[in-house]
Design a protein around this nucleic acid. Structure first.
Lengths: 211, 211
DNA sequence: CTGATTTCGTGAATTGTAGCACGAAGTTTC
DNA sequence: GAAACTTCGTGCTACAATTCACGAAATCAG
């Protein structure tokens, strides 16, 4: 029996981890995997994996487990990864350039179709496959490639105005590396990459260790 | 009355966001702030902020709110940010170099005291304030500075072995940028920075939008 | 072909988190 | 100095997420 509940966001966030682990298993030549084995690889309980998957259908076989390739295909389709997603990246500092050069994006269905910065000395420079462009070109690129996904890697002070520009141009999802919470309309998804905050939450535990 | 409950990890993870917002307020010259105002800045309800803080004491004043500077000092002490934390960074590719050059770490009490790579052509090069060193020097540096915090920015295939080295040398917390789940002892904290997974969870929603 | 074994899918129980709403304590207004 | 207002801290309630545990379905051994 198929579930009709809307899958909670926590479940959606785990799906990419399942997908990645399945890709590794596929590379290793593993044909099938149980929820138990998959769970051990990604530190999640077997029941959690089964329950998560049950929001989307029945993909396993009793006594056997899951067919690695089939389950991967299913999850990729659920996530919309059966086609490439164009992405724009704003901010071509050290971090932005590192992101632009990271092959992991291109390999996983994410194609950076525009890299932008305001620094006139940077504009025109080539970074990997991308040329650094002026903000003025942003709306045209977003329109041309129908971009809905974006990454912000500008200093905190400029992140909000960049977000406003992106949203105005049609972007619907933002991955923000700047250490500031963005104010956006309800129909725009925003996620944060915040290594300093993460490290600071770990210092809490370290500070309490052998005391 | 002071709470005796152990604060849940979700609360600990929010504290750095509160701290950061308070730092911005302090810079703006704001002297006091209500849970309402603070909440609006970081998209958290006022009740949540009050409840979170109540795990650690009573910091506010009825009718007024919180003294920005005082609350910030309290939170920083709670997080152990009243002193600097030495950090080692393993992996000096584009990403590792971008991390090493990011001033945000140094400014927020995190001091990179060692930058390591295996590539012989890189060893000896200077990246910001740090020289790229061979893995062989890792244990000595970790011992010398009593390092317990680390960052991994090596390719996925090497991340586990690097984690093993770090833990063996005495590191107790790892921030892992490599797209792989690490297997570690229970007394080591591991957190992940995984932009691809985050983007993939957003494609789920985008794929369902106007359909 | 039968019994033992594995593993799924899921309702029920448990655990965890967030939000409401109110008493208390302080400030402001006139 | 009293009434109106603001805002904290927190017990309680509601909601959400995770885990348990078991029937069902499949395989495997002999």
């Amino acid at each position: 029996m198929e579930r009709l509940d809307v899958p909670p966001d926590v479940v959606i966030r785990r799906l990419p981890l399942y997908a990645r682990s399945l890709r590794y298993l596929l590379d290793e030549g593993v044909l099938s995997v149980s929820s138990q084995e998959l769970g051990e690889r990604i530190n999640v309980t077997a029941a959690q994996i089964r329950k998560d998957l049950s929001y989307f259908g029945e993909f396993g076989k009793q006594g056997i487990g899951y067919d690695v390739e089939k389950l991967l295909t299913h999850i990729e389709r659920i996530l919309g990864l059966n086609h490439r997603w164009p992405v724009v990246l704003v901010g071509a500092g050290y971090l932005g350039q590192a992101i632009a050069r990271y092959e992991g994006f291109q390999k996983q269905g994410l194609q950076i179709v525009g890299l932008f910065d305001t620094d006139p000395t940077k504009i025109g420079q080539q970074v990997g496959d991308n040329e650094i462009r002026d903000y003025a070109e942003m709306p045209a690129i977003i329109e041309k490639y129908q971009v809905r996904l974006s990454i912000i890697s500008v200093p905190a002070a400029h992140a909000q105005s960049v977000a406003d520009l992106l949203i105005k141009a049609g972007v619907r999802a933002i991955l923000n590396y700047a250490p500031i919470i963005l104010q956006t309309p309800d129909d725009v998804w925003v996620r944060y990459i915040d290594p300093v905050a993460v490290l600071h939450s770990m210092t809490y535990y370290l500070a309490r260790e052998q005391s």
